[in-house]
Design a protein around this nucleic acid. Structure first.
Lengths: 106, 106
DNA sequence: ATTATAGTTCGCAAATACACGAACAATCTT
DNA sequence: AAGATTGTTCGTGTATTTGCGAACTATAAT
């Protein structure tokens, strides 16, 4: 019997937000949005961080389901995970709308 | 001469996302959205965390400009920072839209 | 079989984040 | 002035995050 402290939605939202909570990761997503996909090597020339560090950030985004990577030897090609993104977009979008609505006044 | 590694937008986005990156803070915002405002004491009965911990989370949200607190002795009343929220909403909203658009194919 | 290339993983250090209870501060009530 | 109430701040311990270079792995080219 697990005490559920938070709803699934709250946990998912916070997980996504956490993944977005670093400038490098925002930059990665913007880059991938602009050119649809990008090789690790090209990214590391644009984003000012060591390659190993970039790998970590890419991995966090991947774990959160925001991007996906494909090994096309000898390079790794990353792109937005479109399927998941729709979900993410809806989740974030309705959260934002929900906060935006004024339900009651003090 | 400061090396600007990231754009202002990237930094602001990541800062906001970071503030949203914890279930407690998501829960706080949802609560405040539903009842427009809430006293710390009432929140601490709903959100399963020690009062001192709640204070920290509230402070992080305040620092990020997402909520505001008002001392109405003997209680502290919190609510969404509506002015900032419009900005936040736009920023997040256009980021999401930007990612959602498919600009090119691989 | 070597060598070269592209990324990931490892190992480490420093900084932040998270959580709690105890101590403290500010205000109101008696 | 004492006491009660409400939150915040402090001190502490633990866990996670961030960053880097070195070592490693996988594939392709010679």
């Amino acid at each position: 019997m697990s005490k559920k402290k938070f709803t699934e939605e709250q946990i998912r939202l916070s997980r996504i937000a956490k993944a977005l909570g670093h400038p490098v990761r925002i930059a990665i997503l913007q880059l991938l949005a602009n050119q649809s996909c990008c090789y690790h090597g090209d990214m590391s020339e644009i984003i000012p961080v060591a390659k190993s560090t970039l790998s970590q950030h890419l991995n966090e985004l991947k774990e959160a389901g925001l991007i996906q990577g494909e090994f096309t030897p000898p390079m790794v090609k990353y792109c937005i995970n479109r399927e998941n993104w729709e979900n993410t977009r809806d989740l974030l979008g309705s959260f934002i709308e929900n906060i935006s609505e004024v339900k009651n006044y003090c």
